[in-house]
Amino acid sequence: MAENKHQILLDTLDNKPTYRVLASFWHHFLQDERQQVFGYRDQASIDNVIKLQQRYYDTHHPDYTKIMSDNFFLHPSVIDNAFETPADLKKIQHIEPHDPWITRQVAAIKSIVDHYQGEIGSFYNIFSPWYQLRLRFEILDNDPGKIYRLFKADPQAVAEAFDLLADDLIVLTTKLIKTSGIDGIYLCVQQPQDSVISTKEWQTYIQPSEVKLLRAVQNVHDYNMVHICGFAGKHNRLGDYKDYPAKVFSWASYVEQVSLKEGKELFGGRAVMGGFDNTENGVYYRGTKEEIQAETKRLLEENGQQGILLGGDCSIPFDTDDSRAKWISEAAND
């Protein structure tokens, strides 16, 4: 009888003992960031990513998947308006539940998950309201400092925009969980990387929209993950997230220098995911089969197995050999 990796995933998230440890890694399928933002308006681009995701599953048979939001990075109201002053943030408005950004996204993810035929479980990437606005300024304006300038000028205006975005993300994630077949969302969060925003300001103006979104989606299905993103060496205060309502936590263990075991303790014993450096300097990208399998065994010996999913600190480079994940599954369960 074939093993049910989907049930093993759910048991792992519930911190139940399992007879095997699951491993998975992921990367974007679109390298053009503008296409990642505007691709939802191009059905051919959507269909291409669906096929690539399906082919990835057919070729490599991952233990579970974290599905990227390629083509659907940002809310339409965030990308269709110009923002130069805090007052401009009023241009961010709700979209209808039948907006193509929602309906095409749900349909695309359903096509990917249906292809798994129930054999594995999956998470779907969602960028938090803060992350959405930050990426808009970085990708489309080439001005990473803009979000900090707007925030310092009128933090309440920014907070109101975040709250509105959270409402629409709740509509999207509810539809995704109820109709696409994913087990939960992978909410990508990151603290401000500029000291002009204090911890207190983050807690007052940014954190509420993230918690609001998580509480709503947890009420739909409580298998959701918070990914505290340390991509490209960004640092976060992990303890600031310990009360977020989520089933599982992921962070950049190599950036933060916090092991899976330490993070599990920090997040109240909840399930955790990660362990491997996701960069070109990491053993997963550079190592031999023997080195990767030795690192797998070290991670499990030092951190335990219950309530642990093996994966990368974040998305891996485009040119990574995707077959390497099988080496980790083999070593974790031999």
Rank of each mutant, 00 (worst) to 15 (best):
I67S: 06
G312N: 08
D99K: 10
Y116C: 04
I292Q: 07
Q117V: 09
V49A: 00
D63R: 07
K234W: 09
N219T: 13
D322P: 14
P76R: 11
I182L: 02
G307K: 05
H61E: 04
P76N: 10
S122W: 05
E330N: 12
E291R: 13
P129T: 11
R134S: 13
W130G: 00
G184W: 03
R298W: 00
D14E: 12
D243P: 09
E201C: 08
T65P: 04
R34A: 04
P144R: 03
V189M: 06
H227R: 03
R270F: 10
S250K: 07
V106S: 09
H115D: 06
Y64R: 06
N81M: 10
A271K: 01
I328E: 08
A246I: 08
R149W: 12
D168F: 12
D334W: 12
V49P: 05
G282P: 07
R237M: 07
L176V: 09
A44F: 11
S329E: 08
N142W: 06
E291A: 14
I147A: 01
Q54V: 05
H227E: 02
I92G: 09
Y56V: 01
G287T: 07
P62R: 06
N4A: 00
D141T: 09
I139M: 04
D183P: 06
I139R: 00
F38I: 02
I182A: 03
V226G: 05
D99S: 13
R149K: 14
R286I: 05
R298V: 04
G312L: 08
P100F: 11
V171K: 14
F151H: 12
L89S: 12
C188S: 15
D167N: 14
D80I: 07
G184R: 01
D80L: 13
D154A: 14
D154W: 14
S111Y: 03
L30S: 00
F73R: 05
E280N: 13
I147W: 08
L52Q: 15
S209G: 11
L300P: 01
D243V: 12
A216S: 15
W251Q: 02
Q193C: 06
I197E: 04
V196E: 04
A325Y: 09
M225P: 10
L89G: 10
A332K: 05
E295K: 15
E160T: 15
D277A: 09
Y56G: 03
D42P: 11
K297P: 04
K289E: 12
T173I: 02
R136F: 01
G307Y: 01
V113Y: 03
F249N: 01
